[in-house]
Design a protein around this nucleic acid. Sequence first.
DNA 1: TTGATTGTCTAGCGATGCTAGGATCGAACC
DNA 2: GGTTCGATCCTAGCATCGCTAGACAATCAA
Lengths: 192, 192
Amino acid sequence: MSVQERKERERAERERLIVATARELAEQQGWDAVTTRRLAERIEYSQPVLYSHFRGKREIIGAIALEGAAELAAAVRTATAAAKGPHGRAYALARAYLDFAARNPAVYDAIFQLDGGLPYAQEDTPEPLKDAFAALLECLGEVAGDGVDPGLFTETFWAALHGLATLTRAGRLPPEHTERRTRLLVDRLTVV
Amino acid sequence: MSVQERKERERAERERLIVATARELAEQQGWDAVTTRRLAERIEYSQPVLYSHFRGKREIIGAIALEGAAELAAAVRTATAAAKGPHGRAYALARAYLDFAARNPAVYDAIFQLDGGLPYAQEDTPEPLKDAFAALLECLGEVAGDGVDPGLFTETFWAALHGLATLTRAGRLPPEHTERRTRLLVDRLTVV
DNA sequence: TTGATTGTCTAGCGATGCTAGGATCGAACC
DNA sequence: GGTTCGATCCTAGCATCGCTAGACAATCAA
């Protein structure tokens, strides 16, 4: 039995290695550089090994997306917990969210831009994704205002943040006034 | 002279054919289906002909982006011209923008998601892109509110719309309450 | 020791974007 | 009108992509 357990442990370890290496490669050189060959070379195994863990490249992206969503949720919760007042928390959330996107562009893309084969906004949506949304909801529900559904408000607020994050990083928005845009968005959208 | 003119005309005509065909193919089957081979086959020329017009696939995307930006600007101007009052115009703009994104997903991606090799938010940004932003600015400058830079406000408003458009189409947001989200966004962001 | 199972790798398939080099065709000159 | 020559276009091919079949080796059970 112990032998089998050891094998399973090693296998799980290698799976973590694959995900971590893919993520590292994506952050270092962009998702285009993440090819199955390069990835295989970096983990010092041959290509087909990847396919014994994941159905394909898409599933690797999906795994990184789940990992990233959990981290995003944690970052948001940490930031909001340290802030005071509903408006302060909403602002802290916005800052934390945009900061995460800027610091982990490849992971952010895995979650929100690329196709990782994950179901979103459905019943069978994986827990980390649901929880990331929940983390936003916990904070933003406070500032939705009367008569506005907290879920709907959170979706809208989130979409606005997502727009800022993606357009800024794609060079569609000049990077200099990010801070002012964030303040404007939070001040206008939230109701205290 | 006339011979040369005819040739130039035919060449320009073929270039339009390439762009139109690529766009059609992208809208019909998605950007993944737009390969140089398929595109060449559809225009009934060989692959290298594409490269006598464009540096590569990226430039074709760029051409579609410019074309699309002009259409988006026109759509926004038409919609706002027909609406009444600053708030009404801002709302009409939002509707027109999201409508354009929903009806022309491939073109929208060419403008805002894919890499068409175009410079954004710079001095040498192509005119159609600048003009599209100008179209937004014309309308949104009215509702920026006192003490808020119209340009900055427009960028923020636009980013929010972009977030709604992309998240909805990527299945990250449930499609049912788009209308309510749009209203919420416009009502909160604008100052009348 | 043998046989079977599990694990891994080599090699290759059909695509992709892009390009070199040869063939062909038409305009222009003697 | 025939010939030259340049522009135009296509065939064929390169390197790389995601992914997989089948051979091979290592490990375990009998």
